[in-house]
Amino acid sequence: MKKLINKTENVVSEALLGMDAAHPDLRVDHEHKIIYRGDDRRPGKVGLISGGGSGHDPLHGGFVGLGMLDAACAGEVFTSPVPGQIMEATKTVDDGAGVLHIVKNYTGDVMNFEMAAEMAAEETGVNVLSVITNDDVAVQDSLYTAGRRGVGVTVLLEKIAGAAAEEGRSLAQVAEIAHRVNANGRSMGVALTSCTVPAAGKPTFDLPGGEIEMGVGIHGEPGRKRLPIASAKEIAALLVEPIVGDLDFTGGDGVIAFVNGLGGTPLMELYLMYNEVAQILKKSGIHVARSLVGPYITALDMAGCSVTLLKIGPEMLSLWDAPVRTPGLRWGV
């Protein structure tokens, strides 16, 4: 394992020190491993909190700031944060308007956030609602599994719900649009390599040189199937097909098309992939209203990408275009 680290057990805490040093407009609680907005929050604004295992940067800490999250709880690498952490963040960001928890659908994350919401409500009476993202079409039989995983849609949801909260909408309204984003988004990923968790020191799974793993998760969970490496055009088709097969994206005001890097793939290849995806969408009669290309929800050093489509209307579009100022996304300000 070759990584830019000092001690494997300090990877998360030292990365947080770096976030703190690099972004003076954020406030980092190093004891609880929570990243907060550093600016003064308006009283009565709904608080938005997310969090999860570390190693998916910029998700979630890099999306804290104006127009997105109020706080992000960092767990150990690929391990959910614990209820005490989430409860602390919940109590801190609550200004009386309540708090929305944005949770990716993984068993550990769901349970830890659920406990935190119960404990915080019991202690301070804070009103907490949750939205669970589950957009990964690679997990098929969700009736008999833990369900579809939360992946790319989480990024788009944090932006759109963040803008809704910034506008001063109520907790119920922010939660409603968050649920709507999740219901209208679908994703699918492909890995060209495994990733290496620092504490493990070796790749999570073995992927022979000439093969790719279709339908991979963001922790190196197994995908749908292994295939020989193919051209970008062919891989783009394999990614888009199950997405558009799962939800009708034609008509209306179009989609946000999001090509995400998993951490180890250069931006050049992501743009190349975006071109292929855009061509397929055009042929399928799907209008691309907005796009996002880059590594936003990663799996450490995994090479590969995911494609997310989100069906949008005028309301979501205007919330997407609203100003945002975070380390990961920044426009309009």
Binding site: G75, S80, G108, M111, N112
Partner: peptide, 15 residues
């Protein structure tokens, strides 16, 4: 247990 196990086992054993 809840604050030190993590993952899914923490909330389950904690509960």
């Amino acid at each position: 247990v809840v604050s030190s196990i993590g993952g899914a086992s923490g909330p389950l054993y904690g509960t």
